[in-house]
């Protein structure tokens, strides 16, 4: 039996269903964390504790596992995300320039979300589209063969005029 989450938030129901599918096995921790992040966007302490309780795991183990893996995030992401590929092929083809351009344009550092919550600039180890290097994933859509101008063109509008 699950301890239903007191908030009554429907997403917890979906999370419960997912944990149930794995029969509340502690082994399923990473699967459950993926699901929780899908549902809630990020993993906050309350959520981690809820998962720990239901999988009957020590909280420190859940926290330790969640922070080991870089795909899990603990703060909300921006409205838009730009994921820059920093793999070898993209590196050789000038990914650093793309990074510098956006950091300057948006006044934030790689890995951060701007304080107005409009956008996040993230880095990936390699998105596996090396044939098109350098590559960025803009709101989930892969764009290849970029240069700084082309990239700026693609993210135009993220900054406020609401065209995207």
């Amino acid at each position: 039996m699950t301890d239903a989450h007191p908030s009554g938030d429907k997403r917890f129901k979906l999370l419960d269903a997912s944990m149930k599918r794995y029969q509340f096995q502690p082994d399923a921790l990473i699967e459950v964390l993926h699901k929780a992040q899908d549902l809630f966007g990020h993993l906050d302490h309350d959520l981690l504790l809820y998962i720990a309780r239901n999988l009957k795991l020590p909280p420190s183990r859940v926290y330790g596992v969640a922070t080991f893996y870089h795909l899990f995030s603990f703060t909300p992401k921006g409205e838009h995300t730009c994921l820059l590929c920093l793999g070898t092929a993209c590196y050789v083809k000038g990914a650093a320039k793309l990074q510098a351009t956006l950091e300057k344009q948006w006044d934030l550092k790689l890995g951060d979300t701007r304080s107005d919550g409009k956008m996040s600039l993230l880095g990936a180890r390699c998105v596996g589209a090396c044939g098109l290097a350098p590559v960025a994933v803009l709101d989930g859509k892969v764009s290849g063969n970029l240069n700084p101008e082309a990239l700026l063109q693609l993210v135009k509008g993220w900054d406020g005029d609401g065209t995207r």
Partner: peptide, 20 residues
């Protein structure tokens, strides 16, 4: 979930077991 080291076989096993 984004860890290169999990390609190493013993780390991969740990990861399937829901561990670091």
């Amino acid at each position: 979930a984004g860890a290169f080291v999990c390609g190493e076989e013993t780390a991969l096993i740990g990861s399937i077991e829901g561990k670091r």
